Amino acid sequence: MKTHHRFALALSSALLMSLPAGAASLQERYDALRAEQPKLAFRDAAAKLNVSEAELLASTGIGKTVTRLQEGDTVPREIMRRALDLGKVLALTRNDNGVLERTGVASRLKQQEEVAGLDADKEKEREARLRNIAGGYLGGEIDLRFTFKNWKYAFAVAQPGKDGAVSRSLQFFDQSGNAAHKVYVKSDAGVAVFDKIVADFRNPVQSADLKVAAAPVKPAAKPDSAVDVKEFQLAWNEINDVHQFNRLLTEFGVTREQGLRLGPVDKVQRIDPKAVRQLLEQAAKQQVEIMAFLGNSSTIQIFSGKINKVQEAGGYFNVLDPEFNLHLRDSAFVNGYIVKRAGVVDVEFYDKDGNEVISFFGVRSKEHPIPQAWIDLTAALPKADAANQASR
């Protein structure tokens, strides 16, 4: 392209981008942005256009490549239950600084049996767990934990690619239009299942008008001085199951990262946030089986197994294996921690707002409940500098 043509294109794009909302349609503004930055990710384009990803998807796709699906308290769970019939899929979960993509087949749950004799707290936990189960996805290749109350909008997308092949996906978003989870069809047999899901859950009103809500304001953390640190640390030491940790945080009214900062000094060690690179490189080199947990307020996705190819590309540090991709914007990582709870060791990374981006565990087994290779790998991670350590 000649220089003056590029300048004209950039100028027209800048003019469209600077117009007040309504002066140019969202489609026109998106087209101008895409012409200027053809490799810009759809989510990043939405941010530049100051709209949510769901709004951009609906405005540019409904009536063409996008079908709006029904809404309702039970609808997302039912769609995901039906999605078990898709067979091989790519499941994608993301947050602001990470993306986890896993290709495989989701497992199904056996028929739930009635459980009698539970106390009130355990029965409440069981009911909550059942509300967030979609008939499967627990363990196996596609391993997901849902919080369906935060799922709001659903779309079916059938997008022709450059090679002519059509990419089919189910895409879910929260009430603020942020991506909750996406499922991509990866088998010919899944196409008919996808089409049936679209037909059965098609919204009778194919409107791009979404009533997105402002993102909820994150509540301010309790001042450290208001926390009974001694009692908190004693309670931490009494944990005998790693799953009790969230209950401990709730009991003392502290955020997760705050809990790590205030935890027993022999249970939490701050590490260099860039240690995530060494962790993944060494896990690949030594073939140490890991578990990676990455999520948002709607979904947590888990990968378990060995990794092979790791590299930096596109502003991310990546795992690029055939059926597992992980993309981490580690430049946004501010803090990292090695955490010991109930005999389990994990590594967690946080952004500047105290949001957990990703956590890693060693894969346990009956023979190796505390994998020594994982313990050795974590022990070798570079520690945070002395000033950061002292800030604890």
Score class of each variant (00 low, 15 high):
Met1Ser: 14
Lys2Leu: 12
Arg6Glu: 13
Arg6Ser: 10
Leu16Arg: 01
Gln27Lys: 02
Gln27Asp: 02
Leu33Met: 02
Arg34Thr: 07
Pro38Ser: 09
Ala45Val: 01
Leu49Ala: 00
Ser52Phe: 01
Ser52Thr: 05
Glu55Trp: 00
Leu56Lys: 01
Ser59Glu: 02
Arg81His: 10
Arg82Phe: 05
Leu84Gln: 05
Leu86Asp: 03
Gly87Cys: 04
Leu90Thr: 15
Leu92Arg: 13
Asp96Tyr: 04
Asp96Met: 07
Gly98Val: 05
Arg102Ala: 14
Ser107Ala: 07
Glu114Ile: 06
Glu114Ser: 05
Leu118Ala: 09
Asp119Glu: 13
Asp121Leu: 15
Lys122Arg: 13
Lys124Glu: 13
Lys124Ser: 14
Glu127Met: 12
Glu127Trp: 06
Ala128Met: 11
Arg129Gln: 12
Asn132His: 11
Ile133Glu: 11
Gly135Cys: 07
Gly136Asn: 05
Gly139Tyr: 07
Glu141Cys: 04
Asp143Leu: 04
Thr147Lys: 11
Phe148Tyr: 09
Lys149Asp: 12
Asn150Arg: 07
Ala156Glu: 07
Ala158Ile: 11
Ala165Lys: 15
Ser167Cys: 14
Phe173Asp: 06
Gln175Ile: 03
Val185Gln: 13
Asp188His: 08
Gly190Ala: 12
Val193His: 08
Asp195Cys: 08
Ala199Asn: 10
Arg202Pro: 10
Pro204Ile: 14
Pro216Glu: 05
Val217Trp: 01
Lys222Tyr: 01
Ala226Gln: 11
Lys230Cys: 00
Glu231Pro: 00
Glu231Trp: 00
Asn237Ile: 00
Asn237Ala: 13
Ile239Arg: 01
Asn240Pro: 00
Arg247Asp: 15
Glu251Arg: 13
Glu251Pro: 00
Thr255Lys: 09
Gly259Leu: 10
Arg261Phe: 10
Leu262Gln: 07
Lys267Arg: 15
Arg277Asp: 08
Glu281Tyr: 03
Gln282Cys: 09
Gln282Val: 14
Val288Trp: 00
Val288Leu: 05
Val288Gly: 02
Met291Asp: 02
Ser298Thr: 06
Ile300Lys: 02
Gln301Asn: 12
Ile302Val: 15
Ile302His: 01
Phe303Pro: 01
Gly305Ile: 10
Ile307Gln: 06
Lys309His: 09
Gly314Val: 06
Gly315Trp: 03
Tyr316Ala: 09
Arg329Leu: 14
Ser331Ala: 14
Lys340Phe: 13
Ala342Arg: 12
Asp346Thr: 15
Glu348Leu: 04
Asp351Lys: 04
Asp351His: 10
Gly354Asp: 03
Val363Cys: 13
Lys366Thr: 14
Gln372Cys: 06
Gln372Asp: 14
Ala373Met: 08
Trp374Tyr: 13
Ile375Met: 11
Ala379Met: 00
Ala384Phe: 08
Ala387Asn: 08
Gln389Glu: 12
